[in-house]
Design a protein around this nucleic acid. Structure first.
Lengths: 349, 349
DNA sequence: AGCGTTGCAGCAAGCGCTTTCTATGTACTC
DNA sequence: GAGTACATAGAAAGCGCTTGCTGCAACGCT
């Protein structure tokens, strides 16, 4: 049999109510009584029954963090920062919260199911990270779910995700479009006119926005885009490798390759090297995100630095109600262009 | 007001008991009744109250995964594999489980507090990943906590962590010692006799075991170790960079650097390059873990491949009781030496 | 002295579900 | 056709906690 509140109460010679109040510290209790209770708690090694507490109080100390791929540092870094702010153990705020990271694996169903699971647990808050899936049906379902969560008192924050208008969710969005544009403009500025683009999965907002930025830059400089210059793939190295070979096959005269993210860019570098091309002398390469390993690539990667940790921390604070929501409930977070060794002037053909 | 079981029961014209039984599917219910109930659930958009359910049933569907650093792919990959097996949404098994990843940040207190939090939630299982902290006091506290969890019916699995004897926890341990030895023997076999070693944080089992393997290899080949050849640091790139500069300062005649893990090795590579040394012509470098980016380094990294995903998946299955525990509750998982471009014969001085 | 305050502690009513036990109708068996 | 077994549904007793309300001293005020 596990120890209950009543056991502690008996030992401390007080009523269960008093024990509860000592533990929650939300009601005046005489110092001597408190001490007696805490002593009993300690002696009996009492651990509060979470479910019972959540049921009675109609609130829980669970906070959910949804990520697309926990094995990807992009999400790991954000999750880490969010969790640090949520409190979890070690957080400054009194009430300890259990920050839980849920891995959707990019699957719409899992995303929805996790939200239901969190709703079921009456989570105090939920942070959704990463790009959204652009299927209208799924999006409607998600919005409905988010609205329901908010109605039930759960705070919902979108971190690095496009806003969900009319749901009441607070959004900290990355300016993927602006970043993409800046990156491509950098390459154009170096003199590149034939740029390959390795995009992420089709139905992702992140993919679309970065690509739109790229195209905006091309358009702004009067460069007409060749449809052969764009290839779609997954957000991983392997995909970047294969896509690059494909690009090279389609048009060997490309002088630059822009990748959907850093992992893809690394794959691109490998493919170029394996094809006997030098970076950046023969082909320039650019990534996106500026994950820690990007600076270690040889040559180090030109990319757009996204303040993942900062944004995550802010999202965490907002989720905890420790920081005010941005005006309008939407904030756009800009990336910063990091020019490094992988981009240079194009070869003079 | 949220919808409750009773509301559904009223709508379906049955008793709450019946609704509960339909939802849990653990008791015969006539097909026609079931249908009526499910229809009502759907119409009312009913979501089970998790805490209430957990309280009444005295069980929960929460499974905890403790990791040292969620931003590190080493843990991300394991966590991802564990979670995939746990079920979470998408898992085959009926009952959906909420697999939650808790980030301890390597702090003993947080580790302990998370365990308490999970105990409080009456978690169904807990998986602890990564090396343990070698402080006797902390270790005793952890063991006691683990024992308590197990007594309370929580299954505890250690993944990539040394066994905790007498606690009843099941352990899938990585053979860090063997891997470390094999790695260093590879370098010795190439002809290296002056090897620097960048170890991880002092008080970690992982650190100690890998270092022990390294020293065992040296001893086996009659190489006397110079105390200047070992430097301790953190498990990150930065640390590897700095430690390498320090090693070079202490003994410029080193022909190889063995790092505590791949991130550290990457930092080492950067430091060597910045010092004007070629890899592997001037200095060979070796890592540990074989994380995805290691193959992308230039030259690609010689390292020991740890089957993180496989071990995680197995740990997940064991935690769910879907796979039998190894005999004696302990299994040792071996790494595999991956010889790549970063190691070669030493320069002939 | 009388009375309103204030400070602490206890009572008891739930929170929304699960589950044991009981009740009822139906299907067999001989 | 009586007796037994089976399938299904309901009543009700909690699960362990929180919290509104009540109770009761001790205190200060006029």
């Amino acid at each position: 049999m596990t120890v209950t509140l009543a056991d502690v109460a008996a030992r401390a010679q007080v009523s269960p109510a008093t024990v509860s109040r000592v533990l929650n510290g939300n009601y005046p209790v005489a110092a001597s009584t408190r001490e007696r209770v805490l002593k009993a708690v300690d002696e009996l090694d009492y651990v509060l029954n979470g479910p019972a507490s959540a049921l009675a109080a109609a609130t829980s100390d669970l906070v959910g963090i949804l990520v697309n791929d926990i094995a990807d540092p992009f999400f790991g870094i954000m999750a880490s920062a969010i969790q640090a702010e949520i409190g979890g153990p070690g957080g400054r705020a009194g009430g300890e919260r259990l920050a839980v990271v849920c891995n959707t694996g990019g699957s719409p169903e899992r995303e929805l199911t996790y939200l239901t699971l969190l709703q079921r647990q009456r989570a105090a808050a939920v942070v959704l990270t990463g790009g959204a899936i652009e299927d209208p049906v799924h999006q409607a379902a998600m919005d409905a779910k988010v609205r329901k969560l908010i109605d039930a008192g759960t705070r919902v924050v979108l971190c690095g995700r496009p806003p969900a208008p009319d749901t009441g969710a607070i959004a900290l969005t990355f300016d993927n479009r602006g970043g993409g544009q800046e990156l491509t403009e950098h390459l154009i500025g170096l003199g590149h006119r034939r740029l390959g683009y390795i995009a992420g999965p089709q139905e992702r907002t992140t993919t679309r926005h970065r690509l739109e930025g790229h195209r905006a830059a091309l358009a702004a400089h009067g460069i007409e885009e060749d449809p052969r210059w764009t290839v779609h793939g997954r957000y991983d190295r392997r995909s970047g490798y294969e896509a690059t070979l494909e690009l090279l096959r389609r048009d060997p005269s490309l002088t630059a390759v822009v990748a959907a993210n850093d992992s893809v860019a690394l794959g691109a570098c490998a493919a170029l090297r394996d094809s006997g091309l030098r970076i950046p002398e023969d082909v320039s390469v650019a990534g996106f995100d500026d994950l820690p390993f990007s600076i270690d690539a040889v040559p180090s990667l030109t990319t757009v630095r996204l303040p993942l940790a900062e944004a995550g921390a802010r999202a965490g604070r907002v989720a905890m109600g420790r920081e005010e929501a941005p005006p309008g409930g939407i904030a756009s977070v800009r990336g910063e262009l990091m020019v490094r060794g992988s981009s240079g002037v194009p070869r003079t053909s």
